[in-house]
């Protein structure tokens, strides 16, 4: 029983450390990849603003293709 308790305390301690490391690494990753030009995150912020049906999506969802053909067939 004692032993389990000790193991658990260590586990808990290291989980906390790991969490901190993971979250810091994540935010570093986010900023670095944008700096290197691999990703542009901020453009997605426009999703809430340009949300009319007639607005062009930032990236088309490909699945849409098959349905488009269907709707053409129907009309």
């Amino acid at each position: 029983m004692e032993l389990i308790q000790v193991i658990r305390e260590y586990l808990y301690f290291f989980t906390t450390i790991a969490l901190v490391v993971i979250l810091y690494a994540y935010i570093l990753h986010l900023y670095r990849s944008e700096k290197r030009g691999e990703a542009d995150y901020e453009k997605y912020g426009r999703l809430a603003l340009d949300d009319e049906l007639s607005d062009k999506p930032i990236e088309e969802n490909i699945k849409k293709e098959s349905e488009k053909r269907e709707s053409i067939k129907e009309s």
């Binding site: 997605y44 999703l47 809430a48 088309e60 969802n61 349905e67």
Partner: peptide, 12 residues
Amino acid sequence: MGVRREKTLYIS
């Protein structure tokens, strides 16, 4: 979401 036209899911 399955029939969405916008590929990226917005934060909300």
